[in-house]
Design a protein around this nucleic acid. Sequence first.
DNA 1: TACGACCGAAGTGCATGCAATACTGCACGG
DNA 2: CCGTGCAGTATTGCATGCACTTCGGTCGTA
Lengths: 209, 209
Amino acid sequence: MTRNLLRRDLAEEITARVLDGRIAADSRINEVHLARELGVSRTPLREALIGLADRGLLVSAPGRGFLVPPFDPDEARQLYPLVAELESLALRWSSPQDLAGLTGGLDRITAEMTAELARQGDLSTLDDRWHALLVSRCTNPHLLRLLEQTKPLLKRYDARYFGGVERSKESIDEHHRIAEAIRVSDLATAVELLVRNWVKTLAYLEDMG
Amino acid sequence: MTRNLLRRDLAEEITARVLDGRIAADSRINEVHLARELGVSRTPLREALIGLADRGLLVSAPGRGFLVPPFDPDEARQLYPLVAELESLALRWSSPQDLAGLTGGLDRITAEMTAELARQGDLSTLDDRWHALLVSRCTNPHLLRLLEQTKPLLKRYDARYFGGVERSKESIDEHHRIAEAIRVSDLATAVELLVRNWVKTLAYLEDMG
DNA sequence: TACGACCGAAGTGCATGCAATACTGCACGG
DNA sequence: CCGTGCAGTATTGCATGCACTTCGGTCGTA
């Protein structure tokens, strides 16, 4: 077990707060206040912030500390295709046999999603788990690292969108079709469907403004 | 102008040292010694190391500090295709007009490369500049960030390879052909050639062991 | 010899301290 | 009214200090 470093837990906690808005977009982060609130000293907190800034979730303004970047429609338009391409790549760099073994798990998550949809629950994290599982057989760890770094940036936008029931149903259906393509080892189709899944998600997001 | 932060300069310096081997692969980093050598305290040094670890150039071992990962042939086989895909994406996400305006600069760098090749100079940094210029018109800053993060990892392997004269000539020729494809707005060919450039570079690297 | 427990030194991870810079509010002048 | 200068405060960036973990070597025992 990896002994936990304070800075890692802090990075996780701060990420969660930025994603759900407890740390507002387009605001500065006060290190003293936040450190006090989290019950730690500034040192590991700063270390966490630096890591998050390197991943693009925060920006570092020399002399002014760290800022949460404002929401920017253009950024969403950039992030969704990027994640789509990265996941496609991860899929193409997985062996079809390994992928076939995933379909059970994938279907289980989509089943959970339909259940969660019925009770108006949180689909976002299930969607995350589904996509994470989908790319988990990629043999290129560096690509997976880039994906893990980029996903939170996207999730900042995704979080407000989820809740559209009709789109959720549609997306779940798309997940089913992707899993089916994988089951029959039709990787090309799976990739195609995956990209369309992301593109359509972005389209819905844009329609809401 | 961005006031310089010590941690940024340090990250740059440490990257350079890792790339040229002054900090050896497969070794631990001693924060006290390195801080003394660089004339700074451990705090900004650690901040720099954390950033580099987030980018994958170092790995953080809890309780044991930071390590320079060992050379791994598999890693090279993963990084080159990854960079090839990322650069291709950057090219596809550039407007052809903007790209056309780059050909002059690209040709100038290749000219410098031939000159440098004659006098046995350093081709690696020129190659870097060429590729950086090539993707500079990409409208997706996040993709460029990923590229900038990934390039140093690859360069660690690339650094030992450069020097093969015959491959260098070949690579310069490939650069010419890519620039020409861009000049006539044949993006598909440019992308194709670019991928092949990276693939062949990797192939040569593997032949040398 | 091989193996493991123990002990001192070394090193990391986190907390605290300090100086320089950036922000806030207000007075003043245009 | 708006902009400008200035003093005091707040905050960052870096240095230093401290406790706990890890590492290297030695001893003892099988």
